[in-house]
Simulated assay, not measured.
Amino acid sequence: MGKRDNRVAYINPIAAARARGPAQASGPTIQDYLSRPRPTWEELKEQLEKKKKGSRLLADFEDKMNEVCKQMPC
């Protein structure tokens, strides 16, 4: 009786990847990221000023609560 053939074929993963060709882009590229629109320095300053002023919603809520407290003893 002969020996059983138990050799396993080895596939080089790098060669297999190259044989498939270049990978398909599945999202934005680096070039898309680098060429994205950016705010100007003036727009950036305006955004920072808005953040410093605080939340408009919170200010409205505080004003409303102050009006309610004036009408009723809190």
Rank of each mutant, 00 (worst) to 15 (best):
M1E: 06
M1R: 03
G2N: 02
G2T: 01
K3Q: 04
K3E: 00
R4T: 08
R4W: 12
D5W: 01
D5C: 00
N6G: 04
N6K: 11
R7Q: 07
R7I: 08
R7Y: 08
A9F: 08
A9L: 10
Y10S: 01
Y10L: 06
Y10W: 13
Y10C: 02
N12T: 01
N12M: 02
P13C: 04
P13D: 00
P13W: 02
P13S: 05
I14R: 00
A15C: 07
A16G: 03
A16T: 04
A16W: 00
A16E: 03
A17T: 01
A19G: 11
A19M: 12
A19K: 15
R20F: 12
R20N: 14
P22S: 11
P22H: 11
P22T: 11
Q24A: 13
Q24S: 14
A25L: 15
S26P: 02
G27Q: 09
T29R: 06
T29P: 01
Q31H: 11
D32R: 01
D32N: 00
Y33E: 07
Y33S: 08
Y33N: 05
R36P: 00
R36N: 03
R36H: 02
R36Q: 07
R36I: 05
P37F: 05
P37D: 10
R38E: 09
P39G: 12
W41H: 12
W41P: 10
E42D: 13
E43V: 03
E43T: 06
E43A: 06
E43S: 04
K45E: 15
K45Q: 15
E46R: 15
E46N: 10
E46W: 13
Q47W: 13
L48T: 12
E49G: 08
K50H: 10
K51Y: 12
K51C: 10
K51G: 11
K53A: 15
K53V: 10
G54L: 03
R56P: 00
L57V: 05
L57P: 00
L58Y: 05
L58T: 03
L58R: 06
L58K: 09
A59I: 06
D60N: 09
D60P: 02
D60A: 13
F61E: 03
F61P: 01
E62G: 06
E62S: 02
E62Q: 08
D63E: 15
D63G: 12
D63Q: 11
K64Y: 10
K64Q: 07
N66D: 11
E67S: 07
V68S: 04
V68C: 03
C69H: 09
K70Y: 03
Q71W: 11
M72D: 04
M72L: 07
P73V: 11
P73S: 14
C74A: 02
C74V: 06
C74W: 07
